[in-house]
Design a protein around this nucleic acid. Structure first.
Lengths: 250, 250
DNA sequence: CGCAACTCCTAACCCAGATCAGTTTTCCGC
DNA sequence: GCGGAAAACTGATCTGGGTTAGGAGTTGCG
């Protein structure tokens, strides 16, 4: 396979597509990227991909399946920080830091490409443009964490749940896994509770309310936006922070 | 001034010192960094440094004073996402994204160096090592936001307040603005409330409890750790996420 | 096939923290 | 040193969401 073919095939991965939405990458850049990508691995539900407190962890680019990163508390509780969907880069902090500060757990069976620290840093010196692209991707992830933080700090349980489902929908649409109508969602109400900082019981109540008011229906692994506009309105959702406005750098 | 002198003087800035704790940067790298740094600006309390929704914003490296980044909600409430202290890079997302997704407000009078988007990206292509360093700094900031998120999602008001004060103390110590005994803190209880996702009234109650139990005293702009170890214990503070373990890359 | 483990769902009760409605103290400019 | 405005502080009351304690499908696996 020559370089152009590699570049063409990598271009179709959800991760590359996301980066290309921001930075123009040359075929050479893409070829370097595809090298990072080589090692494909599979993970079953129930076995964490990344472990808090351990050193020499890898990062991954999710090819298929869902995962979530979370932190455990001394008391036994946990907080899910982010849900990862195909195309997401996960565990960046676990390779930049000596020891990982969080866990990553598959929610469904997962296929992912392993990214090693030295390969990533070597790639940066070959093509600084890739470094900028990765920095952008990391910043976009941070923007989502920030919005999640606002959810927990200043929105009611109902607003928060609505906002979260809208964000997830917007992200999935970007990689072709959903539309304005809704999306398939393998999250249990327990995981949703750990994400939203609520109890599972209350998540159940809130979902019922949202359903009865004709806003969203989340049942049987499927989220359906019954009244998209009303949902956006009540949750104060503003997708600006997802920065979907096309490539910034020439 | 020749290149070596520039490099020597920049090495003493809190920002450079923070990066040097992680990546070894050559004199040439430092010289490139000092170029980014050239434009020094001052900001008075009451005038935001960065505005949500506006384009062509700058980023800044804080030289002196405190600032905070926050998001406003449609309902009029706000959530403070992060407190910035000297040495912190602020507004990275406001230059990587077309429009800023957050505001930054000075808490005290501030001196800061302006960093422009094209200068930053140009610097990356001159020295990829700087790109890695900035990516690390951004990841460390994200780690703090993540811990803040855990605060809001899964800790009680008391744990949360204690945890926040400990983190702030650890960060200030790193730039020489505090010690294990305590630090000077210009935050009002209102701002603390917007940071911790609480009402100002409740912040006041919590601070009183913490004081009466001999854990921390926050009065007259000064935080004093009365019983550091007990405070760490009750809040579940683990400074691993601040990644203070010395340079990772050769 | 049958038991175990999950997940979803519900009702009753309770409490951490919000809200309301102030008073007092501190700070700062004139 | 005085007036005005933040900031700090308080008590009383109310409520969103937690906790406890179930039951009723569903999936999977030995």
């Amino acid at each position: 396979m020559n370089e152009t073919n590699v570049a063409l095939s990598i271009q179709d991965s959800p991760f590359a597509r996301k980066l290309l939405a921001f930075v123009r990458l040359s075929d050479a850049d893409l070829a370097i990227m595809s090298d990072l990508y080589r090692r494909r691995r599979r993970f079953a539900v129930g076995v964490d991909m990344i472990h808090q407190g351990q050193t020499d962890q890898c990062a991954y680019v999710l090819a298929s399946g869902w995962a979530c990163s979370y932190k455990l508390l001394p008391g036994g509780g946990r907080q899910i920080v982010d849900i990862q969907i195909p195309g997401d880069f996960l565990g960046l902090r676990s390779i930049l830091f000596r020891t990982s500060d969080h866990n990553v757990e598959p929610i469904t069976p997962v296929q992912a490409s392993e990214v090693r620290q030295r390969d990533l840093i070597a790639a940066f010196s070959q093509t600084p443009r890739l470094a900028t692209a990765v920095l952008w991707a990391a910043s976009r992830d941070e923007a989502m964490v920030v919005e999640h933080l606002v959810d927990l700090g200043r929105r009611t349980a109902t607003e928060r749940t609505a906002h979260f489902l809208l964000e997830l929908g917007a992200r999935l649409r970007l990689v072709g896994l959903g539309d304005r109508k809704g999306f398939l969602c393998p999250l249990s109400q327990y995981r949703l509770a750990d994400t939203l900082g609520l109890s599972a019981v209350h998540v159940n109540r809130v979902l019922r309310e949202l359903r009865e008011e004709g806003l969203v229906t989340f049942q049987k692994g499927r989220v359906v936006f019954d009244d998209f506009d009303a949902l956006v309105e009540m949750s104060g959702f503003d997708r600006a922070y997802l920065d979907h406005e096309g490539p910034l750098l020439i």
